[in-house]
């Protein structure tokens, strides 16, 4: 059996994302920040199991649904929330908001909120690392809709031609066509039998993994990231996620309220679609049930981990809400970087 401390850490890292995102939904509904936003609930295991395999010199590129990726990589929840609220203490001084959160110090220098926008950039970062003979690799996270974009095709083709060290992680959270309704957030519409047919046509080794199965994700990313490192070439993985019911409407909601740890101990959530998701498709509940069954974790530890994470996120919310607004003069600063002295 693997080390129980490692499992607790992984659980904590996933829970941190979930509790963070719940506060984002709550703050939006309470008028805490303007504008549209996207949460990562239901996909936490992907970010966490990828980041477990990364080294400090590796780089990550993400999308408008970036909170989970930043948290898994170690960004400060308080400074992230402050940015989401548009405060001076935000990671990007209030310039990015939720959609473009970036943190250069953790290897996440730029976040594009354009569908597919980061894929060529991530590929170029891998080219740059190769040029500099850095041991680093790049991970690009994106959704299934990125495959609707020409940028995906160009980026993956370039990665194959140039042989650069990058892992493309497609988090497919699309709604099956028969279940789609008007007014929902759009899903991808790709005329391929499966997503991996596209990168495979460009000779990029590609795999599919279940996004609700933490063990499968761990094994998959351990293998693929090792392959990217040793071969210094590209890999593609489609992570099949079942969309969390709260992400089905155009604006996220918390159906059934905050996620409840008792659901891992037999309690049933309402409504029905949430219950069905919690039973089979929630990576966090699946993971917890497995750990409890194997005796790696007990009820007391699980509740203690959750309490610790809730406190941490409460502190982050407090930090963000009590942070000052930026000086309006900041709006006209920072368009250009200072020239380098040679």
């Amino acid at each position: 059996m693997e080390d129980p401390v490692k499992h607790q850490k992984r659980l904590e890292n996933m829970l941190r994302i979930r509790r963070f995102e719940e506060q984002v939904v709550r703050l939006s509904k309470a008028g805490g920040f303007p504008g549209h936003y996207h949460v990562y609930i239901g996909q936490e295991a992907t970010a966490v199991t990828v980041c477990e395999q990364l080294e400090p010199h590796d780089m990550i590129f993400t999308t408008w649904r970036n909170h989970g990726h930043l948290l898994a990589r170690g960004a400060s929840p308080g400074r992230m929330l402050a940015e989401i609220l548009g405060r001076a203490t935000g990671l990007c001084r209030g310039k990015s908001g939720t959609l473009h959160l970036a943190d250069k110090e953790i290897g996440m220098p730029a976040t594009s909120a354009m569908v597919g926008g980061a894929l060529p950039i991530a590929t170029g970062a891998a080219l740059g690392l190769k040029h500099r003979r850095s041991p680093g690799i790049v991970v690009a996270f994106f959704g299934d809709a990125a495959l609707d974009e020409g940028a995906f095709y160009e980026a993956v083709n370039l990665a194959g031609l140039w042989k650069v060290p990058i892992l493309y992680v497609c988090e497919n959270n699309s709604i099956p066509p028969q279940k789609r309704r008007r007014g929902q957030f759009p899903s991808s519409s790709l005329n391929a039998a499966q997503l991996i047919d596209v990168p495979r046509a460009l000779q990029i080794p590609s795999e599919v993994v279940d996004g609700a199965d933490v063990d499968a994700l761990c094994g998959c990313f351990r293998k693929l990231i090792a392959e990217v490192r040793t071969s210094a070439s590209a890999r593609f993985v489609e992570v099949r996620c079942t969309r969390w019911p709260g992400n089905v409407p155009l604006w996220p909601e918390l159906p059934g309220g905050e996620w409840n740890l008792e659901w891992a101990f037999g309690a049933k959530p309402e409504p029905q679609d949430l219950a069905a998701w919690a039973e089979k498709s929630d990576p966090l509940l699946n993971y917890l049930r497995g750990l409890l069954e194997a005796g790696t974790l007990d009820r007391d530890i699980a509740f203690a981990v959750d309490a610790r994470v809730r406190n941490e996120i409460a502190d982050a919310v407090h930090f963000a809400e009590s942070s000052p607004w930026p000086d309006p003069a900041e709006a006209t600063r920072g368009t250009f970087a200072a020239e380098r002295r040679t």
């Binding site: 780089m59 590129f61 060529p120 950039i121 970062a125 080219l127 140039w162």
Partner: peptide, 23 residues
């Protein structure tokens, strides 16, 4: 010199990404 296919969009993005990784 990195030989380039006809992919203006992709290439432009790769130049940006290379700049982000220190080049």
């Amino acid at each position: 010199v990195v030989p380039a296919p006809v992919s203006e969009l992709g290439l432009c993005g790769t130049a940006i990404g290379a700049a982000l990784s220190g080049c």
